[in-house]
Design a protein around this nucleic acid. Sequence first.
DNA 1: TGATAACCGAGACGGTACGTCCCGTCTTGGG
DNA 2: CCCAAGACGGGACGTACCGTCTCGGTTATCA
Lengths: 210, 210, 210, 210
Amino acid sequence: MDEKDCTNSEHGTDLEHLCSKAAGRPRSESARQAILVAADHLLARDGCGGVTMEAIAVTAGVSKATLYRWWPNKSAVLMEAFVAANGACCAGPDTGDVGADLLRRMRGMTAAFAGAMGVTISGMIAEALADPEAAAVFRAQYLAPRWAEAVDALTRAQKRGQIRAGADLEVAVDALYGAVYFRLLTGHGPLIPEFADALVETLLSGLLEK
Amino acid sequence: MDEKDCTNSEHGTDLEHLCSKAAGRPRSESARQAILVAADHLLARDGCGGVTMEAIAVTAGVSKATLYRWWPNKSAVLMEAFVAANGACCAGPDTGDVGADLLRRMRGMTAAFAGAMGVTISGMIAEALADPEAAAVFRAQYLAPRWAEAVDALTRAQKRGQIRAGADLEVAVDALYGAVYFRLLTGHGPLIPEFADALVETLLSGLLEK
Amino acid sequence: MDEKDCTNSEHGTDLEHLCSKAAGRPRSESARQAILVAADHLLARDGCGGVTMEAIAVTAGVSKATLYRWWPNKSAVLMEAFVAANGACCAGPDTGDVGADLLRRMRGMTAAFAGAMGVTISGMIAEALADPEAAAVFRAQYLAPRWAEAVDALTRAQKRGQIRAGADLEVAVDALYGAVYFRLLTGHGPLIPEFADALVETLLSGLLEK
Amino acid sequence: MDEKDCTNSEHGTDLEHLCSKAAGRPRSESARQAILVAADHLLARDGCGGVTMEAIAVTAGVSKATLYRWWPNKSAVLMEAFVAANGACCAGPDTGDVGADLLRRMRGMTAAFAGAMGVTISGMIAEALADPEAAAVFRAQYLAPRWAEAVDALTRAQKRGQIRAGADLEVAVDALYGAVYFRLLTGHGPLIPEFADALVETLLSGLLEK
DNA sequence: TGATAACCGAGACGGTACGTCCCGTCTTGGG
DNA sequence: CCCAAGACGGGACGTACCGTCTCGGTTATCA
């Protein structure tokens, strides 16, 4: 982190030399990439519990010591591999129709969670539950951007007057996302498009009789 | 399961002798209780990942073979210990005021999840994510009753005309519960009473501008 | 050790039950034998430094945990394997001629040390130098019996009047054995029959001019 | 070795330029000294097996690459550090009384071996047992001079007529030194002055009844 | 007076073995 | 037939050290 801030500093000042120490052989970027790729591959093939540090090392053509030099444990490697592969958060288009946009978003999410991504996400949450640091990474790198993006979309709709002024949009996103995660993690209901439809409809219209 | 069906059979018929093949020493009920108590205690103390079959056996004063004679693996023991300790599902009173009842329910849930119970539930879900059979037990013994109870309460309110006719109450409960589980499992927001309040308000009133 | 004393107790008293507890599955003697055989085999094939606990386990068809359950480390396993294979100390015949007997003994020793046994002994001493417990085993199980036997033989000759009364026979054996070990361990001279001859002659006759 | 032969060449001939290709920075003598000092210090503190190349490097304020640039492996460093610190072989005075001289010599040796030097020597022998090159260095740089010196002393006595003509003095020194090394390496007896006394007496007088 | 070549520190790298831990199975003797 | 005690095979874990490598930077000598 520190040296990244340093090298990325766009204003080359005299202070540069303070952090550009970097004595010794620099970290092998190729090894890092190979590890993340191997971890992601094994994650998809063997599931979260089936991945082994030894297997990652062998697959990546890397020594186990190198793994432990840069990541404290298996959770950390898997989590970084996951966010490296799934970090990008493609904001959907804002068509002006909050209902349609929300529907598209939630349908996409349920469809993804119903497939291979669902298995992977489950694994990452299991990992997060056992390791607070992994949890923090998952939250910051994967969850937060998507969540914020959804809140933003709702906020824009609210400013357009489509959503009532007093609504707590953050809690609303928790309810939308939470429902999907709930079904994913507990398996208590199917992740089908109709579920997304009903969920959006429920959130938008509310339960109370007018 | 099999012999349970047998011993629990309330109708003592002539068929009894078919399953009451209890030649030999019967299962020690005291050992079973000691195991469940020990598992629950260790679960609370060491967290889910920290519990060991060996530790359960020693704490319960029981041999490891006895554990594996009656449960197929660690998840099963922990899950049964959990539902034995937390199985009862006390339905709250139905005061006739949906909003107040729902608020009470969700506040209770968030408060519980914010405490020791939250840690335990997290552990059980982690266990469920790694073991489908444990997941089934968790769902059937813990989750389903509470979920059904909540759906029932909303259904009664709907019949009373407090909730609009077309609302999908099952999805609504998924959203309510899901939001709380979401925060519990991802740690992405605090489990405070205000969260319960906002959640109920959002679900009841909906997001759309009237 | 303790339970050995116990089971070997020839007088079956009431106290027997105190130590014949032996609860639990008894130690597998076949595993123990397989381990010692495997260790001895690997020792001969790969030399002392080349043996691996993992290799011993695999060769013996045994789990690594079983190794560490009964021996604290590699040295201990190797040492026990060594003494199990080379523990027997065949006392040579006492012909009544000290010189001849001594010569036969030292020639046999140098011949053995010049061959494969020399390599093995070197390894065991290296192991003993790094691990005091292994040293104690080597001393008690291998060295002491042979040394004592040699001292005894000299003592008998002394009683027969062939060796002068004041001679310190223990120190003499140290000199005889030490010289051979010295050449073995430092490689500073060859272990040939002539060396044994000269050594015995020197010790018997002494250096001083009469 | 090569460049040592070169720099040590006392006869500065025209050939000098062949090996004095010292284009570039010359070897840092201070680093070399620091390494040997550090190795010797760690050897005394942690014992032979406890010394690490990394530790030597850090202690000497030197990089690991520098170690491996000048020595092929750990044994070589330790051995050179040992002989650098203990290479000098102070020949004792030749008083004309071979018995007294021998006694003084062996008493000094046992006393030294009973102390810190004994631990160090043990370590070097352990190292030598695992590495033939280290063994050669130990033999040539440490052992041989002392051994030769002792043989010389005995030879002088023999020429003076104090020792019988036919005695094999080399074997006698092996017996004297070997006995002390034997006790040091196997720990089978104490290294006390009385041992030196008895040893010398035994060797000088021999065992046979006259 | 540079240029250049070998030095140096720092430290990451592949590799190998270590000793620990836990799982789920088994083998005893005893109730 | 149950139970306690506890040994067993299996397999992943995280650590430690080895000897090699790549950096950026530092000297002496040669051109």
